Simulated scan of single mutants.
Amino acid sequence: MKRELPDATELPRRRYSGWACVWCGASLREGGRSAGVARGHMGAHRLDVEVYECMPGRGCNHPRPGTPPA
C-alpha cells in the first residue's frame, strides 16, 4: 500500500523545494530519497515536483509503504 503524496500546491516551501522531508518536515541536509512526484496545478500552470523523504533509520516517524502499522 503506497501512501498518497500531498497536493503540490499545499506543500510548504521547504518541502516543495526538496530541502525537507515531505512527511515530517525534517531537514534533508544529510540526505533523503525520492518519495515520488507531488502533483498540482494553479490555473494553466503545472506545479508537479519530485519530493523527498528521510532515509530509513534517520528519525522520521511517518509510515513507509509496505511497513505494518505500529
Rank of each mutant, 00 (worst) to 15 (best):
V22E: 02
M1A: 03
M42Y: 11
C24R: 05
P69C: 05
P69F: 02
R14K: 15
H41R: 15
A70E: 11
G57W: 13
W19S: 13
A35R: 09
P63V: 01
A44K: 12
P12W: 02
D48C: 06
A26T: 09
A20K: 05
M42P: 00
A44E: 13
R3K: 05
H62M: 00
W23C: 09
V49S: 06
D7T: 07
C21E: 06
C54K: 01
E4R: 04
E50Y: 08
E10D: 14
R58Q: 15
V51N: 02
G40T: 12
H45Q: 14
A20P: 06
P65T: 04
E10H: 08
C21T: 10
G66R: 09
R39V: 11
P56K: 07
K2N: 09
P69R: 08
W19H: 14
R13T: 10
V22I: 08
L28N: 04
R3H: 15
V51Y: 01
L28D: 01
P68L: 09
T67Q: 15
S34P: 03
A38R: 02
P6Q: 00
Y16S: 11
A20N: 06
M42C: 11
A26Y: 03
K2P: 08
R64C: 00
E50W: 09
C60S: 04
G43H: 10
S34K: 08
P69L: 06
A44M: 11
A38Y: 06
M55F: 11
V51E: 01
R64M: 02
D48A: 14
G43W: 11
G31T: 12
R46A: 09
L47K: 14
R39Q: 11
A38V: 04
C60T: 05
M55A: 10
H62G: 04
N61W: 07
C21F: 03
G57A: 09
G43F: 14
R15G: 01
P63K: 00
G59I: 05
G43D: 03
R39E: 15
T67I: 03
G32V: 04
E4N: 00
D48R: 02
W19I: 14
E53H: 00
P63S: 03
H62Y: 00
V22K: 01
G18V: 06
A8F: 13
G59A: 07
V51Q: 02
M55Y: 14
C21V: 11
M42V: 12
S17A: 14
S27R: 12
R3T: 04
P68K: 11
H41M: 14
S27Y: 06
R46N: 15
D7E: 14
A35C: 10
N61H: 13
E50G: 00
C24A: 07
A70D: 09
P69S: 04
P63M: 01
E30T: 13
R33S: 06
M55L: 15
R14D: 15
C54R: 02
S34G: 12
G31K: 13
H45K: 12
S34N: 09
C21A: 07
R15H: 05
G31S: 13
R14N: 13
R64T: 03
T67P: 00
